[in-house]
Design a binder for these strands. Structure first.
Lengths: 229, 229
DNA sequence: TATATATAAAATGTCGACATTTTTTGTTAT
DNA sequence: ATAACAAAAAATGTCGACATTTTATATATA
């Protein structure tokens, strides 16, 4: 039989992953009530693992809990957009500066590899595949850069902010990946970042902050379009 | 009857608060197994709210979960001590620099008030009261400073790292508060920080980083004494 | 029509029960 | 003794049931 050494994950973990995915990809709308009856049928699970998963997502601020009134998807707002992106930009700037000071040869090698892979993303058939394909390598590039800070704690914090930004980020992603021009601009920014980082240019931190803040204007427009305040 | 407008918190919240308190104050030792039977009798609750609370503490990294093997208190280590304090110092340094750039008059007023209160901590009867009393104002001072960064997200992240550091911090606190000399040194550091911040001295960030890193040596000694590697 | 009140329906949060898995204990064999 | 295995005990994780609370609906009142 297969799965000889499988540690058998508990159902709460499955619920956590499914819920997180569905919230980030807007299968559940911002502010939407998360009915237990709905979740039970959707994931085929009882309330116990679902509540555990929801409790975790509350800590990650993707879900909001109101005592005796259950859970809802955390609402989105322009204020939160600005706040999250500001915090991400400042944190990532700090992390880059630390990486410049602390990163070793193996870190540099990882950055070079990730940058190379990102620059070579090929056109694919499916649009959804194209999106995923580019984004996977894009995120991998940034993660490779961040790794140089040599701080597991800061990397965890960074990932938490990333997860929280994911819903907003996704809006930007759809507009960017399918625009030749937008993609070219990003390509240039990544090249400039890459050069500055390898040269240990003290300006790399500031460049990273600007790079991360650049999508805010576009996302603000999309949200306003949708009536989000 | 009283409690006319009480929203009636759910039991998971009580479990969360009790568990967090008990872990931070080392009622449960680092690495200790958290038996459901023990927790049920200690808090007088069923498994459901307990598991929800534990799930949240896993996200906050105070508790570790192993599938099908329950929960244990996250172990403490010298590596984690260094990592947490490094991350805290870097983050708080960043936050101070942002506060210098963004803080307004009301922020300054809050800092002045908190600093004044901290400087005036009086000797109390009980040693435990003395400890709590000083630490409450100490934390309030740092919080008042941090508030100037105008980033709710960064402040949440900051608090998370604080909570994670709490067990280590407590070790330092006991040694410091009861030493006239150590307390005087801290008093000087706070005064210097205060002056630099109000003067918007660009060095304030670096000072804050050093201030936060200073307990590491002492805590390392205490942990080594205890056999923690 | 609007507002308040009573009633019904639905949903949340918690517990106890139970199947499954892990851990301990006891037994036997090398 | 130590190791391998079997049996017993203990613990985890999940579900269904149920009390409590919230929400929706119907009815009465001004």
């Amino acid at each position: 039989m297969s799965n000889l050494e499988s540690p058998r994950e508990n159902l709460a973990k499955a619920a956590y992953q499914g819920l997180k995915q569905d919230i980030i990809q807007s299968h559940f709308e911002p502010g939407e009530k998360l009915l237990m009856s709905t979740l039970k049928t959707r994931y085929g699970l009882g309330v116990s693992p679902l509540r555990e998963a929801l409790s975790q997502l509350v800590v990650e601020r993707l879900v909001t809990a109101e005592s005796q009134r259950g859970f809802r998807v955390s609402p989105m707002s322009l204020a939160e957009l600005k706040d999250i992106y500001d915090a991400r930009a400042q944190l990532e700037g700090l992390i880059v500066e630390l990486a410049l000071a602390r990163g070793d040869d193996m870190w540099e090698a990882g950055v070079v590899a990730a940058h190379h892979a990102l620059a070579k993303v090929t056109q694919l058939d499916s649009v959804e595949d194209q999106l995923t394909h580019w984004d996977v390598r894009h995120q991998a590039f940034h993660r490779a850069v961040a790794a140089g800070c040599c701080s597991p704690q800061l990397l965890v914090v960074r990932q938490t902010l990333m997860d929280q930004a994911a819903r907003y980020r996704y809006l930007w992603l759809r507009q960017t990946v399918f625009s030749e021009q937008a993609l070219a601009v990003k390509q240039q920014e990544h090249q400039a970042l890459f050069d500055a980082i390898l040269a240990r240019d003290p300006q790399a931190g500031a460049m990273m902050r600007d790079h991360l803040l650049s999508p805010v204007a576009l996302i603000t427009g999309i949200l306003t379009e949708k009536g989000v305040r």
